[in-house]
C-alpha cells in the first residue's frame, strides 16, 4: 500500500467518527453556546450579552438546584463505588473463570430494558399501593400504606441501580489485570487485610476507580428520567430545570445558558476529582 492509499484508508476509517463528533457534538454545542449569549430585548429582536448567565446567579432557585444536583450526583457516585467495589473484586479475583461471565451478565441485565421501563419498575415496587408497601402492611410492620416514591433516597437508589454497571466494568478490568501475587506479597510482608486493601489493592485499582467515578458522575448529573419519575416534583434535578426553560417557558436562551453551565460545572468537578486523586484523564478513562 503506498502513501496516498494509506491516507485514503485512514480518512475513510476516520470519517464516521469525525462526522459524528462534528455534527452531533461540536456543532450543537456551538449552537447552544451562541443561543445562550443572546438576550431578547423586544419582539424578535435579540442582542448579545451575558444576561442569561447573570439571571442564573441572581436567582437562588437556579444555582441551588445545580448545587443540589452536583452534591446528589457525588453522593450517588460514592454509594455506587462502595457497593460496586466488592462486587467487582469478587468477579475479578474470587469467582471462578466460568462464573465470571454469568456475573457480568447479571450486572448487564438492567441495561437490557429502557430507562423508562426500569423507572416504572421501581414505581410499581415503591408506590403507596405498590408491592413493598403492601407487603409491609401484610406482615404487620406498618398499619397504613407507605409512600416510598418522591423522596431523595428513592432517587439515589434508582440512580445507583442504573449506573452500577458503568462502575463495575472499569473496576473489573483493572482488578483483573492485577497479579494475585501482589496481594499475596502484601500479606507475606506482614500486611493485615486492611493494609493490603488500603496500600495495595486500592492504589492499584485507582485508575479504574477514577474512570468509573467520572463516567458515573457524568451519567448521573445528566440523567433526566430517573430523577423525574422517582423524585417527582421534589426532585429538583438541574436537567429538569433545563427542560422547563426549553419546553414549558419556551425560553430557549435561558435553557441554553443552563446547559452550558451544567457542562462547565460537571467538567470542573471531574477536574477537581482528578487533581485530588493525582490521576490524569489519560491514565484513567483513556487507558487502553
Amino acid at each position: 500500500m503506498n502513501h496516498a492509499q494509506k491516507r485514503l484508508a485512514f480518512l475513510l476509517l476516520f470519517a464516521p467518527f469525525f462526522l459524528w463528533i462534528l455534527l452531533l457534538i461540536v456543532l450543537p454545542h456551538i449552537g447552544v453556546f451562541i443561543l445562550s449569549v443572546k438576550e431578547k430585548v423586544g419582539m424578535g429582536v435579540y442582542e448579545y450579552g451575558l444576561g442569561n448567565y447573570i439571571e442564573f446567579f441572581n436567582e437562588p432557585v437556579y444555582w441551588n438546584t445545580l448545587l443540589r444536583t452536583a452534591v446528589m450526583s457525588i453522593f450517588v457516585t460514592i454509594v455506587t463505588l462502595i457497593i460496586g467495589f466488592p462486587i467487582a473484586y469478587y468477579i475479578a479475583k474470587i469467582a471462578r473463570q466460568r462464573a465470571k461471565a454469568g456475573l457480568f451478565l447479571l450486572c448487564l441485565i438492567p441495561l437490557w430494558v429502557s430507562d423508562l421501563v426500569r423507572s416504572f419498575g421501581w414505581i410499581v415496587l415503591l408506590r403507596e399501593t405498590g408491592i413493598v408497601s403492601s407487603f409491609l402492611q401484610y406482615i404487620g410492620i406498618v398499619s397504613g400504606p407507605v409512600e416510598f416514591l418522591y423522596n431523595d433516597a428513592t432517587v439515589v437508589v434508582g440512580l445507583v441501580y442504573t449506573v452500577m454497571l458503568f462502575m463495575i466494568v472499569p473496576l473489573v478490568t483493572t482488578l483483573d489485570g492485577m497479579d494475585d501475587s501482589l496481594i499475596e506479597a502484601g500479606f507475606n510482608l506482614g500486611g493485615s487485610r486492611l493494609t493490603v486493601l488500603r496500600r495495595i489493592i486500592i492504589p492499584y485499582a485507582m485508575p479504574g476507580i477514577i474512570s468509573g467515578c467520572i463516567v458515573v458522575f457524568m451519567l448521573t448529573a445528566g440523567s433526566y428520567l430517573t430523577p423525574i419519575l422517582l423524585g417527582g416534583k421534589n426532585s429538583q434535578w438541574f436537567t429538569e430545570q433545563i427542560y422547563e426553560q426549553f419546553i414549558t417557558r419556551f425560553n430557549w436562551e435561558s435553557g441554553a445558558a443552563f446547559g452550558v453551565l451544567l457542562l462547565i460545572f460537571t467538567s470542573i468537578t471531574v477536574w477537581i476529582g482528578l487533581r485530588l486523586s493525582g490521576q490524569t484523564l489519560s491514565s484513567t478513562v483513556a487507558k487502553t
Binding site: 506479597a185 507475606n188 510482608l189 493485615s192 492504589p203 492499584y204 485507582m206
Partner: peptide
C-alpha cells in the same frame, strides 16, 4: 502475615504504584 517467612515471587510482585523506597519500607511500616 504472622509468619516470619518471606517470599520472593516468581514474577517478583514488586508493587508498581510504589517506588523502590516505598516497596522496601512497606513491610517495616506494617
Amino acid at each position: 502475615n504472622r509468619r516470619n517467612v518471606k517470599m520472593v515471587f516468581q514474577h517478583l510482585a514488586l508493587f508498581p504504584m510504589m517506588n523502590v523506597q516505598e516497596n522496601i519500607a512497606y513491610g517495616l511500616r506494617c
